[in-house]
């Protein structure tokens, strides 16, 4: 059984592959992918995850709405969330953090930055 389970909610297959590559460097981790907010919501409510990486701009349901729904669910309130987006402005960052995201990653992403944020949120070395 994996030590940590991570959910990636991102519509771009390129980004998902890059995130999986970065996160696979963590020891004994199980990574689950979701292609949009609705798929992400379905997965996050039906299984346990220790961390969720969520893109903001997605079809069907955007990342901000997904975060709001996650934080509204009592059983998911404590799950760390890292937001991934192209938006670099401080107020966008603030909006995601106010909604309950714990960290914020802007594109273009670097594998080592993803890894260091994931380690911090999962509290692993």
């Amino acid at each position: 059984m994996a030590d940590n389970r991570i959910l990636i909610v991102e519509d771009s297959p390129t980004m998902r592959q890059l995130l999986v590559f970065a996160l696979n460097r963590l020891k004994n981790v199980d990574i689950v992918e979701a292609a949009d907010g609705m798929d992400g919501l379905r997965k996050v409510t039906s299984d346990h995850f220790d961390l969720a990486l969520i893109d903001i701009n997605m079809p069907v349901m955007d990342g901000l709405k997904l975060i709001r729904l996650i934080r509204g669910d009592e059983s998911l309130k404590q799950m760390p969330i890292c937001v991934i987006t192209t938006e670099g402005a401080t107020d966008d960052r603030q909006r995601a953090l106010t909604l309950g995201a714990n960290e914020y990653l802007t594109k273009p992403i670097q594998a080592n930055r993803v890894l260091s944020i994931a380690k911090g949120l999962l509290k692993v070395e």
Binding site: T14, A111, N112
Partner: peptide
């Protein structure tokens, strides 16, 4: 480490 990250990006780009 940097080279590894760069190669990851290039691999992903080429793969996709």
């Amino acid at each position: 480490e940097e080279e590894n990250n760069n190669l990851a990006n290039l691999y992903v780009a080429s793969y996709q």
